[in-house]
Amino acid sequence: MESCAQKRKYAAKDYKSDLKPIWCPGCGDYTVLNAITRALAELALPPEEVAVVSGIGCSSRIPAYTSVYGFHGVHGRALPVATGLKLARPDLTVLVTGGDGDGFSIGGNHFLHACRRNVDLTYIVMDNQVYGMTKGQASPTTAPDWEGSKLTPEGTGINPFQPLVVGLASGANFVARVSSSDPVNMAQIIVEAIRHPGFSLVQVLSPCVTFRPEQAEWRDIVRTAVVDVTDDAARAARRLMTDDGFNVGKVLYKGSRPPFRPEFENTDGSVAELEARFAL
């Protein structure tokens, strides 16, 4: 079976559904969808053996745009759904997609514990520093002086969340930052992220051209990080804490912590034995 599947050739389009995305023209998420399907094709994973799980937000619409198994849940809870799915079905390849608000604000606690727990998942976060679906509010990664939202017209005044640093501190086993402007590189990094055991975190700088039109410039600002991958989380975190957020295109950290994988043991036990303990 397995050798048979490996021999089959897949193209990126085999992983796309016929649904037209609801995204705005120019949205970075289009290329993320392309990169995911390209990565799955390169890995030649049969579509039925892959699941994409998401919460709520523009980027959380991705599952329905793929032809693999998908689950589109509630706001902020994609990681626990994916955790339950992967633990119950270790044979599946499970991806999680979402945005900065879904993952780091309402879902922040799950993010910390997903990193800690290190289940073999790949989490692709499309970070555009704004809530797009609700039409332009500040997100946890928005700069404190951004005055573009009616909700916080004076800016939020609070420092942005540093997802990769927090991810490293919490135990993520693989950390990378990529740009939606380079889908080929993004696909390669997603391939690596899926292959790497444990919890893989990929931050994608994915502009919102509607509510953050200035992000159209990101394609010119981003640069390929001039660092090599490290297995030293502290070193990776120090680099991230001193860069400007636009060093992209590289895997920044690969750890070797074994994934959390409780076994559904083949056991000789039976329900009758459990019952026997109550018998007098």
């Binding site: 626990p80 955790t83 339950g84 799915l85 992967k86 633990l87 119950a88 079905r89």
Partner: peptide
């Protein structure tokens, strides 16, 4: 949500 994921599986 974990049990939703497991049951979906």
């Amino acid at each position: 949500n974990q049990i939703i994921g497991a049951s979906y599986g």
